[in-house]
Design a protein around this nucleic acid. Structure first.
Length: 646
RNA sequence: GCCUCUGUAGCAUAGUAGCUAUUGCGUCUGACUUGUAAUCAGAAGGUCGGGGGCGCACAUCCCUCCAGAGGCUCCA
């Protein structure tokens, strides 16, 4: 076993396992070692850190999965800052880190910047890179640092923190032209930063607090190789092409109209087909998994939200109440209390459990205007919701079953990359309701379920729902963009609040555990995801138009019509394009509409009782026997297959 | 909600030192009856996101509201 180390400058070194941190540091040079955040040490990181911390009082962080890019990006950010200060001396630099996707630089300025400024800045950046200035790290006393950044209140604020922690200030000099307060790490010189590209301009609050001043932010990214830049640009183009808002318009899926309001979705006929196909699938599946469907009202007297403690906590995110007969009525932002009402409406025994109540409930939330985006964040939504009421003993298995249900849905849709985030309570925060014991128990149940299920997950010690821990399912589209698809919770809070009870075997009364789950999230977000995931090329069973017949001339209309009839009969969404247009034109239109199966009908077909098939990817096959083809298509749809094989 | 930017017919666009708007696709009509990504011709369609203001005159300048985008904050 050897320790592989990749240095910030790209060179590689190997050390035998067991080499002390001190030896390593000495060998690669102290400066490099201290900047060794870019170091990769296959599987040895943890040990190495312990050693280094012990021997040298510093630590190696790795960005293994990013291949050391973070360091390059961080240095790129310094170069951007340097360029900005040179071109616009009045700019006050605030901060600028690298991220998983590049870097950004926050600053204060009276002038508001736009992407039109990018060429000039990028030119200056290229100069700095060309000069290949040496980047040097220095540890200096806080006092000295204060002087160095005398006129910069942001750096002073940062130094307050450093002083409080009794750390020395580290600064990085780029040649003698630029200095910044920074923990590092950095590349040894500016020439190694590669091609730096500025991406967009935005704004952000200082230290991420909406009470603070808003700063301007420039996002950028850099690449070592030109090839990587090209790939990046290509991916960006692909993302743009697959933008669900663009596809939603082009393919007549949905519409949001100004007159009605932001975040309020109109499903067009084709979008409605997709929505209902998904919904039917969910109903069918969940029936098999033991769920019972219910339907509940969309409005309620305010009392239930006091009981649930959503009011006044989430008042700002709910639509204002309406006054009905002197009572305040709210539009429901979630289905939970309504399902609780159903649970409570009858006497329940342990024999009734688990009781799984499901509803594609229609909820409305008053999302912040700035948060609304296409289908991904809306104000009216239909949720693949259900609540499982069960005993403590059943809870873990029930929760695992929910995870399995997710896995089934993902598999069917070709979602291969997904992960789970377990969000626990931050005991410091006041956001969370309920007592200590309840949280402890809920979190333990959750952890046990996660562990037993064997799925991979990460833990976040904050971000739970106010009434219980939750897991978020993060799914990745085929082009690698991540979406939060669903949130699931174990809830020991609401059962008590709503006075839900069942009679146990021993005749005593117990409060059920409630599992909140919504594997397909909302129709809105999920179809937004699917649009990107499939790039608009839905599998047959989800396609609004499954088969488009195109006649060569009107002479063949009657044969084509008879086929359409047979297909409709077989449950296939088929339609005939008998416009007086050429076949190439009809093909083109069907391609643009992303109709999966195109059938050309001409003389040959009529005579032989066949069809000529063209698929979206351009495969053509003549002489398919019509009746057999229809059967095959119907079968494919029924099985909800991802692909259609000729 | 906050910051910056944007808003021209169904879609995509031209037009910003102010004088009633360009082109393509789509739509409609007519001709063509056509074998796998766009047949030809003609016509209709916008007062330039809404409102207000400064001008003899505004898509073009100013104010305001609305909507969208990129972010930040938020996301039960």
């Amino acid at each position: 076993m050897v320790i592989h180390i990749e240095l910030p400058d790209g060179s590689k070194k190997q050390f035998p396992k067991g080499t002390s941190g001190y030896e390593i540091a000495k060998s690669i040079g102290e400066r490099l070692a201290k900047d060794a955040l870019a170091i990769e040490a296959d599987g040895e990181v943890k040990d190495l850190n312990t050693k280094l911390e012990k021997d040298c009082k510093f630590k190696i962080f790795t960005y293994k999965d990013l291949g050391g890019k973070k360091t390059m990006w961080h240095t790129s950010e310094h170069i951007l800052t340097q360029a900005m200060l040179k071109l616009f001396p009045s700019v006050k630099m605030a901060m600028g880190p690298s991220t998983d996707e590049g870097f950004y630089f926050d600053f204060e300025s009276d002038r508001s910047f736009t992407p039109d400024d990018f060429p000039a800045i990028e030119k200056e950046i290229a100069e700095i890179v060309k000069k290949d200035l040496k980047i040097e790290r220095k540890e200096i006393p806080v006092k000295e640092a204060r002087k160095l950044f005398e006129h910069n209140k942001y750096k002073q604020e940062w130094l307050d923190e450093i002083e409080k922690n009794k750390e020395p200030a580290t600064v990085y000099w780029t040649g003698d032209e630029f200095v910044d307060l920074c923990a590092g790490p950095h590349l040894p010189s500016t020439g190694k930063a590669g091609t730096i590209k500025l991406l967009r301009i935005a704004s952000a609050y200082w230290r991420g607090d909406s009470k603070n001043k808003q700063l301007q932010r420039i996002y950028g990214i850099s690449f070592k190789e030109k090839k990587e830049l090209d790939e990046y640009i290509k991916l960006q183009e692909e993302i743009e092409k697959r933008d669900h808002r663009k596809l939603g318009k082009d393919l007549d899926i949905f519409e949001i109209v100004e007159e009605v309001g932001p975040g309020l979705v109109f499903w067009l006929p084709k979008g409605t087909i997709i929505k209902e196909a998904l919904e039917n699938w969910a109903k069918e599946t969940e029936a098999k998994w033991g769920y019972k469907r219910v339907s509940t009202p969309m409005i309620t007297k305010e009392g239930v939200f006091h009981t649930s403690e959503h009011l006044p906590h989430y008042k700002d995110s709910m639509f204002s109440p309406m006054d009905i007969d002197g009572e305040k009525y709210y539009i429901k932002p979630m289905n939970c209390p309504f399902h609780h009402m159903i649970f409570k409406a009858r006497t329940r025994s342990y024999r009734d459990l688990p009781l799984r109540l499901a509803e594609y409930g229609w909820c409305h939330r008053y999302e912040q205007s700035g948060a609304i985006t296409g289908l991904l964040r809306v104000r009216s939504m239909q949720m693949n919701d259900a609540h499982i009421y069960c005993t403590r003993e059943q809870a873990v298995d029930e929760f695992i079953a929910v995870i399995r249900l997710h896995e089934y849905y993902y598999k069917m849709l070709g979602i291969t990359e997904y992960s789970m985030e377990l969000a626990l309570r931050n005991p410091e925060s006041k956001k969370y309701h309920g007592d200590e014991a309840m949280w402890k128990e809920a979190e333990e149940l959750m952890m046990e379920a996660m562990k037993k299920s064997g799925v991979k997950y990460t833990v976040i010690n904050d971000g739970a729902a106010f009434y219980g821990p939750k897991i978020d399912f993060q799914i990745k589209s085929v082009i690698g963009r991540e979406f939060t698809a669903s949130t699931n919770q174990i809830d020991l809070f609401m059962g008590k609040k709503f006075g839900l009870e069942y009679t146990g075997e021993d005749g005593k009364r117990y409060t059920p555990v409630i599992i909140h789950r919504a594997p397909l999230g909302t129709h809105e977000r999920f179809i937004g995801f699917l649009l990107e995931h499939f790039g608009g090329k839905f599998p047959l069973w989800l396609s609004p138009v499954q088969v488009r017949l195109m006649t060569v001339s009107e002479k063949f209309d009657s044969y084509a019509n008879s086929l359409v009839e047979k297909m409709l009969e077989a449950g296939i969404r088929a339609e005939l394009d008998n416009r007086s247009e050429s076949i190439p034109k009809k093909v083109r239109d069907a391609q643009l509409e992303k109709v999966p199966l195109m059938l050309t009908i001409g003389e040959k077909e009529v005579e032989a009782g066949t069809v000529a098939l063209r698929t979206l990817d351009g495969q053509v096959k003549f002489g398919l026997e019509a009746a057999k083809f229809i059967e095959q298509v119907a079968e494919n749809i029924k099985s909800r297959a991802l692909t259609f094989k000729i």
